[in-house]
Amino acid sequence: MSVANTPGRLRDWLVAGSPLLLALALGVFPLLTLFVESIGPGLGGENYAEVLSPLYRGALLYSIGVGVGVTAVCLAVAYPITYWIAHRCPDRYRLIALVSVTLPLWLNYVVLNYAWVWILARGGVVNRILVGTGLLDSSLDLLYNNISMGIGFVYIYLPYVVLTMYVSMERLDYQLIEAARDLGASDVRVFLDIVLPRTLPGAAAATLIVYARIAGAFATPEILGSPGNVMIARLVVQAFRQYTNYGFAAALSFVFLLLVLGTLGLGALSPRVRRELRQW
């Protein structure tokens, strides 16, 4: 293999290698520093011991629960939307429909959260309509609970799920649905036997994109959530900024990362998901 030592070969390695190196550095280096920080000082592991105390365990599990729940709701909402846009909507309205569903992507994240404060507050739009039309005597407390937080989450992350799912849904051959109907499948069977398996890669990709971001979100639970239900991001931020306990904050982040990877791995255990993923 004399070719391996020619200057051309070396140049190829440099051209291909430098961006890869940059990507690795950007992705791995901060994680590495964070990890070194988390096990210090003195390789004690006390940081990790503290993370597993009941207070933090609760926040971690709650965050994972919110992540799973909101992702599931997003998928459930995105399925009919993308099915309609890809297979029912007349061609010329398709782009408009897609753009209007994904419009929130272009607004500032924090502003989107405050929009819901304005809508759900005691003097907000919903309460004013309900009281104004005489449906209610007095305003309802709609804000600062799991529902308002959930609404905010779905509103913000649905566009990502819709865009990702749409690609899969559009590639689903509508004739497969017709063939299934022709063979006697009800609407439920068509969904379970054709639509779901053919769009599972899209659902998996959407989950990869939004699940960890929801579980680790900071702004939405702060702005719309209940003060009593603490999600992991607040604890990490507190550790960094209030207590300046970097080691603990880093340990908390790593345990969270492992949990996220663990739950995603759990999903990949399903043989159906694995079979679909292999086709990527």
């Binding site: 004739q175 063939a179 036997d193 679909e276």
Partner: peptide
């Protein structure tokens, strides 16, 4: 015409 066998 395109047969549309269920690929999965």
């Amino acid at each position: 015409q395109d047969l549309v066998l269920f690929p999965h």
